[in-house]
């Protein structure tokens, strides 16, 4: 068939002397042929081919899914479902991580708050910060300097026993290490020499503090026995500005 075909081709392109130009001559001849009815039909078919080709190319570019088969779509759907499940699992994991981190952050916050509170308490006890709160003021009038250091110390100890958080005597803060001594000039509390009237401020529960001072045989009574006068006043707000 090939040999007869080539023979025919040579016959139809007999005007061409060069065998090399045979194929091209056939094409040239075919292109310059006058349109016959058969040519029109061929043109129509090729038009349909071109149209279908272009349409298919466009469709494929527009949406890969619309041209896919049912089995392919099912596979794609399965893939996407698996992917979604995987992502959902990942999301759950990440949510758990978030809540873990939040919880630990909360715990840190609680610990930090507790430390702050403890620090504040220790500062109050150490007397390095001013304190304001409910409490009592005790004014001891002792114009003749009849009291001794032990009487003032008794008062301070009673206030401490009654739960006083902070105490000051004549503007000097009283802390754990504050000495109360009899000095030549009078009674010295820390660096402060007491001058009548002696003012003692204490912060704590006012009723408890007052009761701690006023019970029979207590500080007030012993001060009176010595010959001085003591007045206890319960207050809602007592300011102790003095710091150690």
């Amino acid at each position: 068939m090939t040999s007869s075909g080539s023979k025919d081709a040579e016959a139809s392109a007999s005007s061409s002397a060069q065998p090399r130009a045979t194929g091209w001559a056939v094409i040239r001849e075919a292109l310059s042929r006058r349109p016959s009815r058969g040519q029109w039909i061929v043109a129509l078919l090729l038009f349909g081919l071109g149209f279908g080709l272009a349409t298919q190319v466009r469709t494929t570019q527009q949406d890969a899914l619309s041209g896919a088969r049912t089995s392919d779509l099912v596979r794609i759907l399965d893939d996407l479902s698996a992917q979604r499940d995987r992502l959902a699992a990942e999301e759950t994991q990440l949510q758990a991580t978030i809540s873990d981190l939040k919880t630990s952050a909360d715990q840190s916050q609680v610990a930090r708050d507790a430390s702050k509170e403890r620090l504040q308490n220790l500062r109050i006890l150490a007397g390095v910060v001013p304190v304001t709160g409910p409490g009592v003021t005790v004014v001891i009038a002792d114009p003749e300097s009849l009291l001794e250091a032990s009487d003032v110390l008794d008062a301070i100890q009673e206030l401490r026993d009654a739960g006083a958080e902070a105490i000051s005597v004549d503007g000097g803060r009283v802390v754990a290490t504050t000495a109360v001594v009899d000095a030549p000039e009078g009674i010295a509390v820390g660096d402060t020499v007491l001058i009548s009237p002696i003012e003692i401020k204490a912060i704590g529960v006012p009723g408890t503090l007052a009761a701690g001072l006023s019970f029979p045989g207590g500080v007030i009574e012993s001060v009176r026995e010595v010959g001085a006068e003591a007045i206890v006043v319960e207050r809602d707000v007592v300011d102790i500005d003095a710091v150690e």
Partner: peptide
């Protein structure tokens, strides 16, 4: 010739009309 034209016209129309 007319056959080649038919092919070209078909491709162009398919691209332009987007049926």
């Amino acid at each position: 010739m007319i056959a080649v034209l038919g092919l070209v016209v078909g491709i162009v129309l398919g691209l332009v009309l987007q049926p």
